[in-house]
């Protein structure tokens, strides 16, 4: 491709990708009157932080933020732990039904979440977990993707390592915990960021599983906040709340970009 044309394409692409974010931030810094003026202003003047102040107070935004963090951190920890253990077992150990079980696990990866939605709600209701953190966390403590990822990793572990450990009488559990797992940092990071973003952004399940204000995660809270101004929308206020919801995901992504891209390709192209 022609170099100049290529660069132009890239810049236009980058601009289009960034434009909505710019709009989000400029609008969040405007007063209501300014945003509603016609024709609309592009640059906030006067610049105001009132929307952020109001958003934090009005919509219980901090609470939702905390819920999202709690759910994300716990499910990340859970997925890493259960995924590493199971991935290791599937990769390095032989036990009855191993291959069948792994095949079943892989199959669950194929099932769209919508298929499970109704029975999962019924199950969680039966357990008395509607409107609890358990409903948001426990079903997500393990996943096929994590197992798959760790299995790939542990399959590459040199066998001599294991043998040496075994000769020394090191139990499989010890070996997994003290030798195998610490080598798997890249897989941990990849799964970590995938699960963090998935958890941070997921909407349909928490929408169905929780109803009380204080249990909402950010996406559900944001949707409710938006709905509570259906008649006249205070766009600057809404944009301020949205900014708060977006920023953590972007920060985490910026820190763990490489692992994310790698995981993306392993999940999609190879595997």
């Amino acid at each position: 491709m022609n170099r100049a044309l290529g660069l132009t394409t890239l810049w236009i692409g980058a601009l289009l990708c960034a434009a909505p974010f710019l709009l989000l931030i400029t609008t969040s810094l405007m007063t209501y009157e300014q945003a509603m003026a016609y024709p609309p202003a592009f640059w906030p003047s006067p610049l105001t932080l009132d929307n952020f102040r109001k958003a934090m107070g009005e919509g219980a935004l901090w609470r939702w933020f905390g819920n999202s963090v709690l759910v994300a951190v716990l499910t990340v920890a859970g997925q890493i732990l259960t995924g590493a253990m199971a991935g290791y077992a599937f990769a390095r150990m032989s036990f009855r039904g191993r291959d069948v079980l792994f095949f079943i696990v892989l199959m669950t990866m194929m099932v769209p979440v919508q298929v499970n939605l109704v029975p999962l709600f019924a199950l969680v209701a039966r357990l008395g977990w509607v409107d609890t953190y358990q409903a948001l966390i426990i079903p997500d403590l393990a996943g096929a993707f994590g197992i798959f990822l760790f299995r790939q990793w542990f399959m590459g572990l040199p066998k001599e390592l294991e043998d040496a450990a075994r000769l020394d009488g090191c139990s499989p559990w010890r070996f997994f915990w003290t030798v195998a797992l610490p080598t798997a940092t890249p897989a941990v990071a990849t799964l970590g960021i995938f699960q963090f973003l998935a958890s941070w952004n997921t909407f349909m399940w928490p929408l169905v599983a929780t109803h009380a204000d204080h249990l909402r995660t950010l996406p559900v809270g944001l949707a409710a906040f938006r709905a509570s101004m259906r008649e006249t929308t205070d766009w600057p206020l809404l944009m301020a709340a949205t900014t708060v919801a977006i920023v953590p995901a972007i920060i985490v992504f910026l820190f763990l970009q490489k692992q994310f891209m790698k995981g993306l390709m392993d999940g999609a192209v190879k595997g």
């Binding site: 209701a125 169905v208 509570s228």
Partner: peptide, 15 residues
Amino acid sequence: PDEYAHKLRLMVVGG
């Protein structure tokens, strides 16, 4: 604020 009656019904199911 949204889908009130439907969410209430889910709360009924969930006890």
